[in-house]
């Protein structure tokens, strides 16, 4: 079995973003960038499947600028075997990302593609589902457990009311949720080893994909700010304040 894991370079989850004063976007200059946390979970899952012997090879792919190579190196240090950088300096929307990934899938023929359920910058939550549709593959989104057996993937999903289990024929798409696993930190020797692992460089054009945006950003603004309220002394004061506010 071969697994493909797309990884996205995003603003680090600890950074509180600032909206630019000209409302053109958020200020990304000099902010810390990291692998999308859900993608770390995807890489970890692939590595665990490999450690269990269910998977032979893990290929990671990122679509983005030259620096996305660092994100690929992180994934290689966690245990992926090789990387593909589809280099572009444009902002690529999920639909175009999915089309590029379709091209990669056609070249690599993985049995499973594991993506994050959402990227924490744009919070779109669509790339994996779009890829599944473009390939006419089955999907299991928001996974909290993945079992590979006899060419089938049995996936437990976090849904609104609780948990749901689906059985998928492979090849299939899985998107990861928070409870799937706890990603490892790469060890220093593995970081050194990762430097020698191969990364192929490609362009969106190699897959015949046009990345022109369908959505244009009119503006990016600050949400309404909430003011800190008051501190209450004790429970009795809290209850009386809530009552007078009509909140109880």
């Amino acid at each position: 079995m071969k697994v493909l894991v797309p990884v996205k370079r995003v603003i680090d989850y600890n950074v509180k973003v600032r909206v630019k004063s000209d409302e053109s976007g958020v200020d990304l200059a000099n902010v810390k960038m990291s692998m999308n946390p859900f993608d770390e979970i995807s890489v970890e899952e692939a590595v665990r499947l490999k450690e269990k012997g269910a998977v032979e090879e893990i290929v990671v792919v990122s679509i983005g600028p030259q620096q996305a190579q660092e994100t690929l190196r992180t994934a290689l240090a966690m245990g992926a075997d090789r990387g593909i950088l589809v280099k572009t300096d444009d902002t690529v929307e999920p639909l175009a990302v999915a089309k590029i990934l379709k091209g990669v899938v056609e070249e690599e023929s993985p049995n499973l593609v594991i993506l994050g359920k959402q990227a924490i910058d744009d919070d779109s939550n669509q790339t994996g589902q779009m890829l599944a549709a473009l390939l006419d593959w089955p999907q299991a989104t928001f996974a909290s457990e993945v079992v590979l057996e006899d060419g089938k993937a049995t996936v437990t999903r976090e849904i609104d009311g609780g948990l749901q289990t689906l059985a998928l024929e492979t090849p299939a798409i899985v998107t990861t949720d928070l409870r799937l696993n706890e990603p490892r930190y790469a060890s220093l020797p593995n970081i050194m080893k990762a430097k020698k692992k191969p990364i192929d460089e490609k362009a969106p054009g190699d897959y015949g994909v046009e990345t022109a945006a369908r959505l244009s950003v009119v503006k990016v603004t600050e949400p309404p700010q909430r003011e800190a309220g008051e501190k209450v002394e004790d429970v009795a004061e809290l209850v009386s304040k809530l009552k007078s506010k009509g909140a109880l």
Binding site: E93, P94, L95, A98, D123, S124, N125, Q126, T127, G128, Q129, M130, L131, A132, A133, L134, Q139, T141, F142, R157, E158, I159, D160, A213, R214, L215
Partner: peptide, 23 residues
Amino acid sequence: ATTMGKNCMPRVAAKLDVMQISD
């Protein structure tokens, strides 16, 4: 944008070749 909508709609968008506007 419940888990149902999040799960199903991007497939529809991809098949229609349009960008979904999420949430």
